[in-house]
């Protein structure tokens, strides 16, 4: 597995539409150019207002990733192992677990 040496790729995951905007979130997974199996990938996790999520748990690709200061980290190989997994959700302190999905943004 390898990412192109000359193209930037980002996948954006967003919360499924909710009436309460406080529950909305977005997480952008960035792939560095030329990444290989052991390369660390990071999610940039934000609330709807664009501010980073200070703490929480991002459940994705079958993993529970801690979110600290708006960042959650995993290896490229973990993404590949979980590429068929659909359940995604964000858990923040004092808020219910909010499911999400991939979008084409």
């Amino acid at each position: 597995m390898k990412t192109p040496a000359d193209k930037n790729v980002k996948f954006t995951f967003v919360s499924i539409l909710r009436n309460d905007s406080r529950l909305s979130w977005r997480a952008v997974l960035s792939f560095p150019q030329g990444a290989t199996a052991e390369t660390s990938l990071s999610f940039d996790v934000q609330n709807l207002d664009g501010n980073r999520v200070e703490s929480g748990i991002l459940e994705i690709f079958g993993l529970k990733l801690p979110v600290e200061k708006g960042q959650a980290v995993l290896n490229y190989s973990q993404f590949i192992l979980g590429k068929h997994e659909t359940p995604i959700s964000l858990i923040r302190p004092n808020l219910p677990k909010v499911p999400g999905e991939l979008t084409f943004q």
Binding site: K2, T3, P4, K7, V9, F11, K83, E85, L102
Partner: peptide, 23 residues
């Protein structure tokens, strides 16, 4: 989900099929 990733990689990020295979 893999189908959705492939659709994005090809139409949004313009990766070739060979690049998607590696990705």
């Amino acid at each position: 989900p893999e189908r959705a990733y492939i659709l994005l990689l090809k139409t949004r990020f313009f990766l070739t099929s060979e690049e998607v295979k590696e990705f």
